[in-house]
Design a binder for these strands. Structure first.
Lengths: 232, 232
DNA sequence: CGATAACTTGACACAGCTCAACCTGGGTGG
DNA sequence: CCACCCAGGTTGAGCTGTGTCAAGTTATCG
């Protein structure tokens, strides 16, 4: 395998306090791997044998119910760790992870985890911060699912995606990975039909513009208004 | 303040690996405090100045929306740590915590946190396990809110409460703290009216028996069936 | 240039919300 | 100690948001 460049890690939060040599050390322990769009990295409740760093692309953590319904728990943007079951005192992965777009990852055997925590300054702190952030996201999801209507949930989910992965484009902000109505409905706990109707309606009003597997938000303020509107 | 007895902590997971002296040390640093039923221990986004151990009673973590709606995130049974913002890399509390019944807690200033993590064997591990468990609970909540109907959610919430805090009683298993229809609806993202209707119906079928602020489950199997039934 | 995955749209039904009116048990203060 | 108060609970009536069922259209890819 080609030697990995130190600049890959040096600026990422979990490693930002480390020197050249330590980064080199970490890279030499790592394996890099490429995944196709839609590939599964690991399955829920599988033995957590590796922890990962997402170098490029986006992945999502999801659950599949016994009835086969998909529930998307969260999205992980490039630059973050995932599969960090050990940080949660678990020996199995808590969710299935699959790639949303093509992805490049580094991974290490989980047996190195204690060493990473003990030896690399800032790694533990940043890891736990990441856990905290994800917990916060999940709380937001719970609150939204509990008190908001479908239209509001879809609106605020779109806003969150724009915020996390938006890319400026001609006439609006583009969500920077392929996303279907079904995906959006898995994130909001509704059906692809309802999402489709909402997007159609919003498109007529010029709030969004969507093609197949692609959504561009033209008027974020309108979505913000929709996401907080008092229903009735 | 009266000296606290070492047996209070010795058998609890975060401290189970520690010797007498270390437990003594920890107790001498602790402050004990009693809270009335329904008292607020701390508020969401408040500066996280202390971390807590719940010695007796039950507390719940909840969020209050700008519109004043309450969303219950989780329940903490006696013997667990809470308010452990630092374990999540946060400096503010992520939720409001209030007591469900009378509660006795110990607390320590958050400034001692790094010392607890570094010095007391097993404390870190157990803390992160607790975080992992709570994250798991939240995931379950998200899945349930996404794919289950109200009736199923209320049924499985009741089952969870029975499981976590159930006490064997004459004719069924009693949920061991005062709980209103409103509380249950805050946990399931519905209204107190719907919960009331469900409980009435279930009572007619002999599945539960409920008085004011009290619910007893007589036929857990029936609830299990309801919670997994394919709607339509 | 099929085949198929993604998407759209209409018609309809109903779970569960809202509004409203009413009970009731248990705590408390006069 | 008992009458009052009110938080907590019940139940009905009606409406509507959203799911379900169904039938179609349109991109994209091998």
């Amino acid at each position: 395998m080609a030697k990995l460049d130190e600049s890959l890690l040096a600026h990422l939060p979990p490693f930002s306090l480390l020197g050249r040599e330590q980064i080199r050390e970490i890279l030499d322990l790592a394996t890099s791997q490429r995944f196709e769009e839609g590939a599964t990295v690991y399955h829920e409740s599988e033995d957590a044998g590796r922890f990962y760093l997402l170098l490029d692309g986006t992945v999502r953590a999801l659950h599949i119910t016994p009835e086969g319904e998909h529930v998307t728990a969260l999205h992980v943007p490039a630059g973050q760790l995932f599969g960090i079951a050990r940080a949660l005192g678990r020996s199995t992965y808590p969710a299935t992870v699959e790639t949303v777009s093509e992805a490049i990852v580094l991974w290490w055997p989980m047996s190195l985890w204690p060493q990473f925590i003990a030896r690399y300054e800032g790694f533990a702190t940043e890891t736990y911060r990441t856990v905290g952030e994800r917990l916060g996201e999940m709380q937001t999801r719970i609150i939204e699912l509990s008190v908001l209507h479908v239209e509001q949930r879809v609106a605020s989910t779109l806003l969150r995606l724009v915020d996390q992965t938006g890319r400026k484009a001609e006439g609006g902000i583009l969500i920077d990975f392929p996303i279907t109505r079904q995906d959006l409905s898995d994130m909001t706990g509704t059906t692809l039909h309802t999402v489709s109707r909402l997007l159609s309606a919003w498109q007529k009003q010029g709030i969004v513009e969507s093609r197949r597997k692609q959504i561009m938000v033209c008027e974020p303020q309108s979505l913000t208004a929709l996401s907080t509107a008092r229903p009735a």
